[in-house]
């Protein structure tokens, strides 16, 4: 073998080690905190177990059948769909609007962008408490509204409690999604707009014919994030409404948490989680199939 070829093989080996070394922490993390709990969750979903007892009784698919017949599963599903209907369009329209505004800003763009990101990095429990105080029956917002003779039962009316929570979650994720849209907008070549302008296309036409189609990757990823978040929503309803009033803010994760850690039905909680994961993946798969498009500039 030629010496140069041997060096090349050695070099490739070294690069390989460096590469695997760099991803190793993430793989270890994934194995410990995702793969292991997932397999464990899968195993206990076929068992009756109360977390603390050493005894685990194998009960086949009983837990899964119980999930399907649990009225709270369907109530949570309905609530999640309602949340999605309110949350997804609002967060997408608002974050796209903010991204379009940010793109027009010539100075301090990063400052404003990171300003919007502040809500994303704030602690869920902390802002949930702040919002629950602000919007409570005797909170600041209602005190101010009472000057006009209006009181809105933000979290105490079964009809609007979930929508109120959706609005809070929009506030949290607006900045993050805006940044994704902004990155998408910045990747669209300006030459496309220039040639469209020369052809006499209006701003509106440019938006619908250039911006929207070319934002498809950003739009798809945000849609997937938003839908997955809807399935995973927990902190806000748990902290603010506790699932009430009249179960109108019950969510899947709240049920999983309640069954596992409060009622001590860990097996049932696991099977609940698996069913929810299957539904959630189905939604994501459907979105990718219907929305995702390959784009080229």
């Amino acid at each position: 073998m030629k010496i140069s070829k041997m060096f090349k093989i050695q070099e490739r080996k070294i690069y390989g080690f460096v590469g695997y070394g760099l991803v190793a922490p993430y793989i270890i993390y994934t194995i410990i905190f995702w793969v292991y709990p997932f397999i464990w969750g899968l195993i206990i979903s076929f068992k009756k177990w109360n977390i603390i007892s050493p005894e685990k009784e194998f009960i086949g698919i009983s837990n899964f059948l119980k999930v399907i017949h649990d009225p709270l599963f369907w109530i949570s599903f309905k609530n999640i769909l309602f949340f999605m209907i309110v949350y997804v369009p609002i967060v997408i329209i608002c974050s796209l609007g903010v991204a379009l505004l940010l793109r027009r800003i010539k100075f301090l763009q990063a400052f404003f962008a990171s300003g919007y990101l502040m809500s994303y990095v704030s602690a869920g429990v902390a802002y949930s408490i702040v919002f629950s105080l602000l919007f409570s029956g005797d909170g600041l917002i209602n005190n101010w509204l009472s000057n006009f003779g209006i009181t809105i039962p933000w979290f105490s009316s079964p009809k609007i409690a979930m929508a109120s929570i959706a609005i809070i979650v929009v506030w949290k994720y607006l900045g993050y999604y805006s940044l994704i849209f902004l990155a998408g907008l910045q990747s669209i070549p300006s030459s496309l707009y220039e040639s469209a302008e020369i052809d006499g296309a209006s701003n509106w036409t440019q938006f619908w014919r250039i911006t929207v189609p070319l934002l498809n990757p950003a739009f798809t990823i945000i849609l997937i994030f938003a839908v997955m978040l809807s399935f995973n929503i927990f902190t806000e309803p748990y902290m603010i409404t506790g699932g009430g009033p009249l179960d109108s803010t019950q969510t899947f994760v709240m049920q999983i948490y309640h069954q596992t850690f409060t009622a001590l039905h860990a097996g049932y909680g696991s099977s609940f989680a698996i069913v929810v994961a299957i539904i959630s993946f189905t939604f994501v798969f459907a979105i990718r199939k219907t929305v995702e498009r390959e784009i080229s500039y």
Partner: peptide
């Protein structure tokens, strides 16, 4: 009784 929470409502003389 209202259908919403009022923190320390009795203590606030409501």
């Amino acid at each position: 009784a209202p259908r919403f929470e009022i923190q320390d409502g009795f203590q606030k003389e409501l």
